[in-house]
């Protein structure tokens, strides 16, 4: 339902997004039936396709050419997909978007090859663009995303980490790829530098807000809505913003400490989820997300008014209010 609402917001882009969906399917076509199946399995699980949407919207500020924009949009979504397959191995996740993960449907090795295959397809595709600047931005983003993931593992189960640690981690893990989606969409469409910079910052702020909301939803949405068990972040040792706020209560801190990195029952998991959900931490985290959202909206003020700005504004509001 929520995903449908989001899709309604960018219904103007429907034909372009359908084209990108087809391109994604073609991109994961493989001589190997197994890789084909595993990639399609992931692709058909859906997703918000938020990165291609931002590429397309950013393209509206320049010479909008979907044939050119898809050369950036498709690789960006493929990069995101590849990282998801490998993340599921790292987190030992059984379910994603309500469907078995590649690693659980097949095994870790197949998930590794699928991720490598999809990432290589992304790089193969992006080389259709010659601009060194595009490759410079994208390659640096790829590395930073990896650094973010490495830091995430370093920080796992560390209840004493700082807010700054968390923000730097989500910047790399999520915000940068969305920020690059906006910037690359702008650059391939030939916008001026200033516009591209505002769009890059918009993407960054919206990405931060998006990830914070994601982290909140892990405690506030149901298993069914999430397509995975609520509280998965905590179970996997990922210390997110709601936990960072909630730990200030000594009783909650004690509870978190006792259950972190333990094989806890489903009952205990739900108790932790309930405790965080009913604490002030969720509202505080929401406020932090809103601050990023405001910054994102401010960037839009510097851009020419028009349908693209309007849609971006709507998406920004939706991200702030989404329920799962």
């Amino acid at each position: 339902m929520e995903k449908m609402k989001l899709k309604l917001l960018y219904s103007d882009l429907k034909p372009e997004l359908e084209l990108i969906e087809k391109e994604l399917e073609q991109a994961v076509d493989s001589e190997s039936l197994l890789l084909n199946d595993a990639s399609l399995h992931l692709l058909q699980a859906g997703g918000k396709r938020i990165r291609p949407v931002f590429v397309l919207l950013a393209g509206k500020f320049g010479n909008y050419d979907v044939e050119l924009l898809k050369r950036v949009a498709v690789p960006l979504e493929l990069i995101h997909m590849a990282s998801l397959v490998h993340d599921d191995v790292i987190d030992d996740s059984e379910i994603r978007r309500g469907r078995p993960t590649v690693k659980s449907e097949w095994n870790n090795s197949v998930a590794m090859y699928t991720g490598d295959f999809i990432l290589a397809r992304a790089l193969e595709r992006i080389t259709e663009i010659e601009s060194p600047r595009i490759h410079d931005i994208l390659s640096k983003t790829l590395i930073e995303v990896c650094r973010g993931e490495i830091i995430q593992i370093e920080h796992k189960y560390r209840l004493d980490q700082s807010m700054r640690d968390y923000l730097r981690r989500i910047k790399r893990k999520t915000a940068l790829l969305i920020s690059s989606s906006c910037e690359l969409g702008a650059l391939v469409s030939g916008t001026d530098e200033k516009t591209a910079a505002h769009l890059r910052r918009f993407g960054y702020f919206i990405g931060m807000s998006f990830q914070i909301i994601d982290d909140i939803l892990d405690f506030t949405a149901s298993d069914q809505e999430l397509g995975k068990p609520a509280g998965s972040d905590f179970i996997q040792g990922n210390i997110t913003l709601p936990i960072l706020y909630a730990r200030r209560d000594p009783l909650i801190y004690q509870m978190l400490r006792e259950n972190l990195n333990q094989d806890i029952s489903d009952e205990k998991r739900l108790e932790i989820v309930r405790t965080i959900r009913t604490s002030a931490a969720v509202d505080e985290a929401k406020r932090m997300s809103e601050r990023y959202l405001e910054k994102a909206l401010k960037e839009l003020d510097y851009l020419p008014k028009g349908p693209a700005t309007k849609t971006m504004r709507k998406i920004a509001f939706f991200i702030g209010k989404r329920k799962f």
Partner: peptide, 18 residues
């Protein structure tokens, strides 16, 4: 591009093990 294509070929062959 050349290396990406090679990685695809290698991944496809490794997948054939499974």
């Amino acid at each position: 591009q050349k290396l990406a294509t090679a990685i695809i070929q290698v991944s496809e062959k490794k997948a054939s093990f499974h």
